[in-house]
């Protein structure tokens, strides 16, 4: 009974990690860009929602609708003015630029909002739960997981059913040929990063309503997100969801044995999966 409960909590926690990771997975799949600032961008999103809620008194779930376009714009701007300039065969410049960005965002948030922990207040929904007979689950974790599934589903629909998705896939497969067909990779990349930051804003909403956050926690979220992406396999969005669930369940299991082992067991699960399957669980065929 305890085990089922732990695994169910882990599954739902995995939904949160999948939300952290989905944007990263999209960007990585399309332009092979490893964005080391992704965790800090999620935290930035959380502070943006917090600012909107305190300024207007809106519920965080509505504030996110205002925050998302801003974050899309930020993603567009970052990609066109910064990241497009360093993409190329050499992986060092994009890694270092995003690492620099991570430190800049972290410390800018620190000087703007101080190191105090903050939380997004979502009202009574935070404490509600649903009794499913075998286990009782919180409404917020369920909502998080449902959102993760919805986000992955929507991204997949965009990726495989729309003209934009076709352009994403074409650019990912062969940039030069895509250009011959009238696609501008720079624009495609900018849209992709914009979408990634919209997903990051949704992740920020759940991060901020479920637990406290402060400017320093971005890098840890980045690690969980990357573990999910790598476990899932490069470029597979459903794989990323599976990867998030693996990390979430491993953390929940570890924490149920000893609370100090939560993060450690997530990392160890990551190492074990990679030792057995170096390319992740569901690698895309052509990479």
């Amino acid at each position: 009974m305890m085990l089922i409960d732990t695994l169910a909590q882990g599954l739902l926690l995995g939904g949160l990690y999948a939300l952290f990771a989905a944007g990263l997975s999209l960007v990585f799949g399309i332009m092979r860009l490893v964005n080391l600032a992704h965790g800090d961008l999620i935290i930035l999103g959380a502070y943006l929602i917090l600012t909107i809620t305190t300024a207007t008194g809106l519920n965080p779930f509505l504030a996110v609708l205002l925050a998302a376009p801003v974050m899309f714009g930020l993603g567009w701007f970052l990609q066109t003015h910064l990241l497009n300039r360093v993409l190329g065969a050499d992986i060092l410049p994009p890694l270092l630029v995003t690492f620099g960005l991570s430190v800049v965002i972290q410390n800018a948030l620190l000087s703007g909002f101080s190191a105090d922990s903050q939380k997004l207040a979502a009202g009574t929904i935070e404490a509600q739960s649903v009794d499913l007979g075998i286990v009782t689950l919180g409404v917020m974790p369920l909502l998080t997981f449902a959102s993760a599934v919805a986000v992955v589903f929507a991204l997949n629909q965009v990726f495989y059913r729309t003209a934009l998705g076709r352009a994403f896939r074409a650019t990912s497969d062969d940039q030069t040929t895509a250009q011959l067909m009238g696609i501008r990779p720079q624009n495609i990349f900018a849209i992709a990063t914009g979408i990634a930051l919209v997903v990051a804003t949704i992740a920020a909403l759940y991060l901020g309503t479920r637990a406290n956050f402060d400017p320093s926690i971005g890098p840890a979220r980045l690690l969980y997100a990357f573990e999910a992406v790598i476990i899932g396999g490069l470029g597979s969005l459903w794989g990323t969801l599976a990867g998030g669930i693996v990390i979430g369940m491993a953390q929940a299991l570890g924490a149920s044995i000893n609370p100090e082992w939560q993060i450690l067991s997530g990392h160890i699960a990551f190492v074990i999966v990679l030792l057995i399957r170096p390319r992740g669980l569901f690698p895309r065929a052509n990479d």
């Binding site: 910064l82 270092l96 630029v97 690492f99 620099g100 960005l101 991570s102 430190v103 800049v104 972290q106 410390n107 800018a108 000087s111």
Partner: peptide, 10 residues
């Protein structure tokens, strides 16, 4: 100085 350092690196 950390912000400046990051910007310089970029």
């Amino acid at each position: 100085y950390l912000i400046v350092l990051g910007c310089l690196g970029i």
